[in-house]
Amino acid sequence: MKVVIEQVGKCYQGSDGQIITALSDIDLTIHSEEFVVLVGPSGCGKSTLLTMVGGLLSPSSGTIYVEGLESDRDPVVGMVFQEIGLFPWRTVVQNIAFGLEETKLTKGEIANRVRYYIELVGLQGFENSLPRQLSGGMRQRVGIARALAIQPDLLLMDEPFSALDAQTRTLMQEELLKLWTATRLSTLYVTHNIEEAVYLADRVVVLSRRPGKIIDVISIDLPREGRDADACVTQFKNYASQIWQLIRKDAEEAIREGETA
């Protein structure tokens, strides 16, 4: 299955009545089993684009569609949020089961599926913990397991690790890569961290700011595993600095305008 984003734009009405163009002329295809990362400075509309792909926001112009489903149904989309969005009153098991409860699976099937994904993300022993009892990294594991458990056609991740400390973040990136290699889901991943983008992506889509437009699409021609190894270090740095040069000016502008989102 592939996702096609065609001529998509998004405008907001600002508080002073002005029309703000958040995104314009976005053309992008996420192919089957492809890991696409959106990078861009603050306020470039990358999260907005991801939210529209997830069907939680309508584009002002253009269309988004999926192609190549084996039957005429809505695509199953798994979402992972920056603020994680676990239900605080649900245990780990119940949080992971949330999406499954909305399907036709029986209780037994749900329990088996949840057990499988708990093991996959390494949450054994925390099955009955509440979110507040977990560390940030553990919480996001639950968030990822919740998204994977519905066995989505498309995985959407909106800066999933940006609230984590640097060490946890590095470990979580490694684990995500392992999980992804095991599942090979079509994935759209949003981040403002360039190293993260180069580390994870098949293709990095670089967005500009105000209006958000695609400046460049960079295929990362490195082996999936071991991109942080010494053998790749030069190429890795080249990719990272190439992307940084593309967004540097916009990022500086974003700081001056005090933009945070």
Binding site: M79, F81, G85, F98
Partner: peptide, 12 residues
Amino acid sequence: LLIKAAVAFRAS
């Protein structure tokens, strides 16, 4: 965010 998450996971 919780409502968004619920809708994302197709809750009725």
